[in-house]
């Protein structure tokens, strides 16, 4: 069993310390996170669960450097993200993070291939290499032959797989997935989960995934439960059903 206890590893991938997030100000102030702390080691596969409105997405956005905490510290690879400039946070996203959104967030009228190429363009990768990597990523998610279809021509499951291909094409250190199977039927969901498991196991990509369903959370090795902006429980999976 892999040791994930906080004190044993001197080099966590990321660490949240008493992170709070308040939306709005004054009367309308709405605390979404009320002091969340945890750390994630490289290579982990963490499922985040909790009722809706409990702050899961807010937490994911902070982990993805797309939003900033109101208070508390977020360290990614021992770097305090709160001290970084806007552009530095963007570069962090560019080089280390992959994000899978619940709503896919693909560019409309843009082929699957070009969507997947996009993060590589901003990384300044040569077009030959870029193209090959994009084809490869689409193949990995099972979309061989669909490269030139636009999101409008693809089913929800296929769009989500394009979004996954876009997130993993850069070989990120950390893959964040906010309800990646939220819009899919159980068969498609299982396919997606198999994919994520493979990335985690074979490529060592650290994954943090939000899900509502215990079935999906079962694929992860660790589950964090949120409630009302706080962590209710944080447990390692007793048995790994896949191995």
């Amino acid at each position: 069993m892999i040791a994930t206890s906080a004190n044993e590893n001197p080099q966590p991938l990321l660490e949240l310390q008493q992170v709070t997030k308040v939306y709005g100000t004054g009367e309308a102030a709405m605390p979404a996170l009320r002091g969340v702390s945890f750390r994630i080691e490289p290579g982990e596969f963490v499922a985040v669960m909790g009722p809706s409105g409990s702050g899961k997405s807010t937490c994911m956005n902070i982990l993805g450097c797309m939003d900033q905490p109101t208070a508390g510290r977020y360290c990614f690879q021992n770097v305090d993200v709160g001290l970084l400039s806007r552009n530095q946070r963007t570069l962090l996203r560019r080089h280390y993070l992959g994000f899978i959104f619940q709503g896919f967030n693909l560019l409309n009228r843009t082929s699957a291939l070009e969507n997947v190429e996009l993060p590589l363009i901003y990384r300044g990768i040569d077009s030959d290499v870029r193209r090959a990597a994009a084809y490869q990523a689409l193949d990995t998610v099972g979309l061989k032959g669909w490269e030139h279809h636009t999101p409008g021509e693809l089913s929800g499951g296929q769009q989500q797989r394009v979004a996954i291909a876009r997130a993993i094409v850069t070989q990120p250190l950390l893959l964040l997935a906010d309800e990646p199977t939220g819009n899919l039927d159980s068969k498609r969901s299982e396919e997606i989960m198999e994919l994520l498991t493979t990335f985690n196991r074979d490529r060592g990509i650290t994954i943090v995934m939000v899900t509502h369903e215990a079935d999906m959370a079962a694929y992860a090795k660790r589950t964090v439960h949120f409630r009302d902006g706080l962590i209710e429980s944080d447990q390692n999976q007793p048995g790994d059903s896949l191995c």
């Binding site: 993805g64 797309m66 806007r86 552009n87 963007t90 570069l91 996203r93 560019r94 080089h95 993070l97 994000f99 959104f101 967030n105 693909l106 560019l107 409309n108 996009l118 993060p119 901003y122 990384r123 876009r166």
Partner: peptide, 19 residues
């Protein structure tokens, strides 16, 4: 509106403001 979403996607993926 459409373009703002597009810009959001690009930013999320790692495009700098200037780019």
């Amino acid at each position: 509106t459409e373009r703002t979403r597009e810009i959001g996607i690009r930013l999320a993926i790692g495009a700098l403001e200037n780019e």
